[in-house]
Amino acid sequence: MSHFIELRNVNKEYRLGEKLFMAANQVDFTIEKGEFVVVLGPSGAGKSTVLNLLGGMDTVTSGEIIVDGKDITKYKDKELTNYRATDIGFIFQFYNLMPSLTVRENVALVKEIVKGGLDTDELLASVGLKEHEYQFPSQLSGGEQQRVSIARAICKDPKLLLCDEPTGALDSDTGVVILSILQEMSHVGGRTVIIVTHNAALAEAADKVIKMKNGKVREVIINDNPKPVKEVNW
């Protein structure tokens, strides 16, 4: 049976001076369509590396990454860019919005590279930013900025939503709001969402938890009854 996402023996080596550093060591896991996945682990565990590889921002040293039936490790630079443009939505810890574009423009930006996509107005409304649409990122709070970033990621209707510590720069209340939105994207919207975090509490809310340490997958837990984010005890 084929999985939506499958990582097979993925290795990623970094050379730090003389030393070779295995950021990802024989990583193997699968993710199904529509799953809300949390990758857990302390810092330096290789979570972000895996996310970057999956998002086509970095290339593997060896191994295969199959996304929707295609091995993205075989992609060339231009194909990788296309892959990022159409299949992947990114959400970063520090939002990475364009400071010189308004909220609306930041979201609409994506439409210039992807055909179709979702309606900007509806999206902005869905993340509760309709009244802020003509403001610049610098005029918004961190939580609001992250919501813009989510709207931007969703706008192109990606196959996969990748979030790297999306609440890392936020206070916990705001974090909960953001995470609920993301969970909703998966459980209601049917999207595949992968969140990288070091916050173990989130594990209760996930369909699947992948625990990593020292570049290796330690444990994969399947949660048959994930709690809504709001009910998780932080």
Binding site: Y83, R84, A85, T86, F90, N96, L97, P99, I113
Partner: peptide, 16 residues
């Protein structure tokens, strides 16, 4: 550079 990188991640082609 940060903005350009974001755009690159989002999927803007090199030429663009």
């Amino acid at each position: 550079v940060r903005e350009l990188t974001t755009l690159k991640v989002i999927g803007f082609q090199y030429r663009r």
